[in-house]
């Protein structure tokens, strides 16, 4: 497979996952803000923090109002992580590899992009905004389904899987980082409906609410950490994502899953092992923020190693 093509599949997949995640964050926060209206509690800045773009936001907007944050995260082309920017990126990648992906995949991405672009062109989001973000989430999930059902599960597909799961692991860790403070008990809210709302909002940001209930029932901070970080079967849990990404890396190289044959496999294997042998209490005692920081640094290092190993243009070794 051409290196450029593999790289485009990887990024196409990441961008779609990114757009879907941002839409879900927004959707959850829109719901939350309606429920908390009586509290006079409008929290929009944490959404920007979740994508790590505070600095950029303040370069273009003066205050984190609902309108500004929605514009920044959804349509703003100055924000490389906005939903529209992600879809432009995904579509550009898809367009450069149309001969490799299935016709349905291309058609879906093209329509996905046109849908968001058209709404953006019509003066941003309106009263039906919830429906709009649900549509984006659904379109992202459709793309995963179409990819799974129409593209040969070969090398290219595995690059896509790898990209998707690395992006997802990153996003789940960011949710924890930003929202973790609400899991800490505050005297006035313990046991109140407000508390319950916040906790379930956090779980919903990772589409984890129902699955968490099935697994643990009551909402307890340590269990939430355990579920979102260490669960082996929940598809948005960090450990699960890293395992899936690891499977795809080994499928690409054909090497023994218990060993490694290149740098990205080595780094990812080490990261996965360190998570697999840790506990929620370890993480909490060490400090959530420190954990997430370390996590993201190591996820980036795996991505860099992947790029150098498979995409680098200097690698002229026959």
């Amino acid at each position: 497979m051409l290196s450029r093509v593999a790289e485009s599949i990887y990024w196409m997949s990441r961008y779609v996952e990114r757009a879907e995640n941002v839409a879900r964050f927004i959707s959850v926060n829109l719901n939350l803000s309606m429920d908390l209206a009586s509290e006079g509690h409008q929290q929009w800045l944490p959404l920007v923090t979740t994508t790590g773009d505070d600095k950029l936001f303040y370069e273009h907007y003066d205050a984190p109002t609902k309108r500004n944050v929605l514009q920044f995260l959804t349509f703003d082309r100055n924000n490389p992580n906005s939903i529209l920017s992600s879809l432009v990126g995904a579509r550009e990648c898809a367009r450069s590899i149309r001969e490799v992906i299935s016709a349905e995949m291309w058609e879906h991405i093209n329509n996905f992009y046109l849908m968001v672009k058209d709404v953006g062109g019509a003066d941003g989001v309106s009263e039906e905004q919830l429906v709009f973000y649900e549509q984006i989430r659904a379109s992202g999930q459709h793309f995963i389904g179409i990819t799974d059902a129409t593209m040969t599960h070969g090398e290219g597909w595995h690059f896509g899987q790898f990209g998707r799961f690395m992006e997802r692991a990153d996003k789940t860790s960011r949710i924890l980082d930003v929202k973790y403070y609400i899991l800490l008990p505050s005297p006035q809210h313990v046991g109140s409906p407000f508390d319950e709302l916040q906790w379930s909002a956090l779980l919903r940001s990772a589409s984890a609410f129902e699955m968490y209930r099935q697994r643990y029932g009551r909402i307890i901070p340590a269990n939430i950490v355990s579920f979102l970080v260490l669960d082996r079967a929940f598809p948005r849990a960090i450990l699960h994502c890293l395992s899936k990404a690891n499977d795809s890396l080994h499928a690409i190289s054909g090497s023994d899953p218990e060993s490694f044959s290149n740098l990205p496999e080595q780094r990812l294997g080490q990261l996965r092992a360190s998570l697999a042998f840790t506990s929620a209490d370890d993480i909490i005692n060490r400090g959530m923020h420190e954990f997430v920081d370390d996590m993201q640094r190591r996820v980036n290092a795996v991505g860099l190693a992947l790029s150098n190993t498979f995409f680098a243009r200097e690698a002229d070794v026959a």
Binding site: S3, R4, E99, F159, A318
Partner: peptide, 29 residues
């Protein structure tokens, strides 16, 4: 390229060595 089932390549995907033309792939040239 899609209809023929062949690779669509750009100049930067190709390299010439010993007067032979190679594509840069994930498995080398």
């Amino acid at each position: 390229a899609q209809q023929m089932g062949v690779d669509l390549v750009e100049g930067r995907d190709l390299v010439v060595q010993d007067k032979k033309v190679y594509m840069r792939t994930t498995k080398g040239l």
